[in-house]
């Protein structure tokens, strides 16, 4: 009689654990990353923000490119999120101040966790950017569009201190060429 009771209780506990596990899995699978991002902004006490792009590095790592602060959204942020058993969680964030005023293009170099990232604002009329470094490497950064526009490049090889940026419009015409310098120590 007593043995039966013990087995019953143990079974119930195991069943509950299994149900909890699947419930967590279910909630996690269906968690909208945008809700998680929204929540992180709230906890960072960042209001008035604009999201340009969400880049998935793999299934459970994501980088969010955004800018924030009233009135001109001049603080450019990148936030790394990781998917854990508790859902999407904050890993690290970096915010750089860059003013768009009268500039075709701005950019900074930043390191976040183990990634090197170049990014900055550019005009909305820019449709494509080609970066050429002094040692002849060529990159095509991604463009992130919201009400305004940014460019960003997740570097997989050696960072560079200076490069020429060629800006194209949607007809493939060169709009402008700019040389940007990057401080690799910041």
């Amino acid at each position: 009689m007593k043995k039966k009771k013990v087995i019953m209780v143990t079974m119930t506990i195991i069943l509950l654990i299994v149900i909890c596990y699947f419930a967590f899995q279910f909630v996690n699978q269906n968690q909208d990353i945008e809700d998680a991002i929204e929540q992180e902004f709230r906890s960072l006490r960042i209001y008035m923000e604009e999201i340009y792009a969400i880049e998935f590095l793999d299934d459970d790592r994501a980088m969010v490119f955004y800018s924030w602060a009233h009135p001109d959204f001049s603080n450019f942020g990148v936030m790394e999120l990781e998917k854990t058993w508790r859902g999407w969680q904050f890993v690290e964030a970096i915010s750089n101040r860059m003013e768009r005023k009268n500039a075709w293009l701005k950019g900074v170099y930043a390191e976040i966790t183990d990634h090197a990232i170049l990014r900055g604002p550019t005009w909305a009329s820019v449709d494509k950017i080609v970066i050429i470094t002094d040692d002849g490497r060529e990159y095509t950064p991604e463009l992130g569009k919201a009400e305004r526009q940014i460019w960003y490049l997740i570097l997989e090889d050696e960072p560079f201190e200076e490069a020429t940026f060629i800006l194209y419009d949607s007809d493939g015409e060169v709009l402008r060429e700019e040389v940007l310098q990057f401080d690799l120590n910041s």
């Binding site: 960072l44 006490r45 602060a69 603080n75 904050f90 964030a93 970096i94 915010s95 101040r97």
Partner: peptide, 17 residues
Amino acid sequence: YSYIAREYALDAIYKST
């Protein structure tokens, strides 16, 4: 931190929230 970063146009690194 968010207020000071905005007002003083500072760059910020958030390592733990």
